[in-house]
Nucleic acid binder design. Structure first.
Lengths: 340, 340
DNA sequence: TTGTACGCGTTATCAA
DNA sequence: TTGATAACGCGTACAA
């Protein structure tokens, strides 16, 4: 690391360290005679000077880093959110530090601590919380320690902690979907409910139930399959459902990747998705563009969600935790054609 | 930022700064009497001490940051690579700083400079280079400046710069694919060739041509469509091809997202993929699991590629740039059934 | 084994 | 407008 320092530049330009700093950074005191300024800049260029961001962070007392914590960056849901975050972050002059936790809350906590060590300006946390107060308490503690240090936090999903949140309308969106499908003639519903204790899955299930109830329908308990919140979980849940011989018109999955897995299971079982059995998902991940038949879902503007969360962490910290609700809208497609 | 410092901990524990540092960090001189060590640790816990990574970086002269530069994190190709990188990075105790450039080489250069400022230990750069010596020279300069500062670099794609590279067998894989399809009975080939000057696209096209040549076949120039290296580019190219009324058996796309776009275009035009017209891609992105008919492609182990690139940057810098070749293997699926 | 004191590269305060 | 110089928080010779 034979890096050239600001002192080198100053010496080369024949000015003091302070002047060099001012010339290059143009701080509050933006008063450097043009002639000197040019000399400094020239020296910096000649020496290939690269400011040390760590030293700047120390001297300034603040960094230019934003932390992003997701469950799995390879999941299109999270990678779209990440795209929204990186775009908004770059706009704000921040670098994004990415943590992919593999759905492990322990690692979420660990990453928060690392980001606190980095003195990251803000943390955006995506991915559903779970129903485990022990874990949640520790998470809460980690977050409030981080915030006590001056960091800003925005969560994506459901308002659970006392921080700024971009809330996805899970319940309302799911209810709307159930109602829309009932109106389309579907009567015998099943659900791929995700794992127990998964809050997003739970909210969406509640929405399904509420929507159906509003139409005088219901979800039979034996038609509620529990499996992982992943593509493979959807496959598995669907296979079990089909194996059980249950007579259902349509299967509601609590997210798109599960729905897509379910479509595969149906195909493998020789059941035609659409005319044979309806399937619907949630999120409208970009992948869906190329799934056939096109999948009915509830659209969540993921890019925007990521950008909004990022913007929430910028600017002045609010006294009250802010709550940004993003509307989710039903999109009916070929996987659930109208039913006579 | 009322953060508690190591001095606070030392005072609280009634020891010197140095002892506190050694107790918490356990540096080379890992010699601290257990009793004192415990007192320090207790004080640190009581005060909620969080070490300042920036200060540590300065004092140690090295950071714990690895930079990852991709074209578009929402693209499954890159998000899978990113997953491989984050996994390997965490294993090595590094945090990943993510830069998504939106295919803009200028931003690639800018990000390299930022990462240099951060004194990132290493940079992993994914995404094809282009044929633009002006841009490439500046990139080369940025990279060598970074490396001169002691940073390690690994590129993913083709060996173009003088740095460690995880080389994807574009040409060989493409040739193998062409040969396999010819062997399967396909005779009239077309290609979605991507944009001019795109090196990965170019290499793959050369592979197609070579493979066909080895079987005494060829790609007619009028069957080579040029369009963006994206899903929409694939759609567009395919539409033009179909509109042209060209009589072709099979369409080779230079990547999967283009192939998937082409499948959509075929569907929209009422052409059945598989029996009507064959389509093949390249990369075997995870999305393909849920595309129907299943897409023939050339598999690239993306997770592993990301991990390997990361590992290349770790450990001792080699005298010579290392070249890690990852084999790409043809996977024939339903989009190109054997042809009589 | 522990403590003192200096250095890391930069910004910011205060004089000049 | 410029220049010394003191922080910033930590690691680590060197000394004790």
């Amino acid at each position: 690391m034979a890096s050239v320092t600001l002192s080198d530049v100053a010496r080369e330009a024949g000015v003091s360290l302070a002047t060099a700093s001012r010339a290059i950074n143009g701080s509050a005191n933006r008063t450097v005679r043009p002639e000197l300024r040019d000399r400094v800049l020239a020296a910096a260029a000649a020496l290939h000077y690269s400011p040390d961001a760590n030293a700047q962070a120390m001297a300034r007392g603040r960094t230019t880093t934003l932390g992003l914590i997701v469950h799995d960056i390879a999941d299109p849901y999270f990678s779209s959110i990440a795209a929204g975050v990186t775009t908004a972050a770059e706009r704000a002059g921040l670098m994004v530090t990415l943590a992919s936790t593999g759905h492990d809350p322990e690692r979420e906590i660990a990453f928060i601590e690392v980001l606190q060590s980095q003195r990251a300006r803000a943390i955006v946390m995506a991915g559903s919380r779970i129903e485990d107060e022990t874990v949640n308490d520790r998470l809460r503690a980690a977050l409030s320690a981080y915030r006590a240090g001056g960091g800003a936090v925005a969560m994506i999903g459901q308002p659970l902690f006392d921080v700024d949140t971009v809330a996805i309308e899970n319940t309302a969106g799911a209810a709307d979907l159930a109602v829309a499908l009932h109106a389309a003639g579907y009567r015998r519903f099943a659900a791929l409910a995700g794992p127990a204790g998964h809050l997003t899955a739970r909210d969406r299930m509640e929405g399904f139930a509420a929507g159906l109830a509003s139409r005088g329908a219901a979800l039979a308990p034996e038609h509620i399959m529990r499996s992982a919140f992943t593509r493979d979980g959807g496959y598995e849940g669907m296979r079990e459902l089909l194996d059980s011989g249950a007579a259902v018109d349509v299967v509601l999955a609590v997210n798109d990747v599960m729905a897509v897995g379910a479509m595969a299971a149906a195909r493998d079982a020789g059941v035609t998705v659409g005319t044979g059995i309806g399937i619907a998902g949630f999120d409208d991940i970009v992948t869906l563009r190329d799934v056939t038949p096109s999948l009915t879902t509830v659209r969540v503007p993921l890019l925007q969600v990521g950008a909004t969360a990022t913007e929430l962490t910028l600017g002045e910290p609010a006294a009250e935790p802010r709550l940004e609700r993003v509307a989710s809208t039903v999109v009916l497609r070929d996987s659930t054609p109208p039913r006579a």
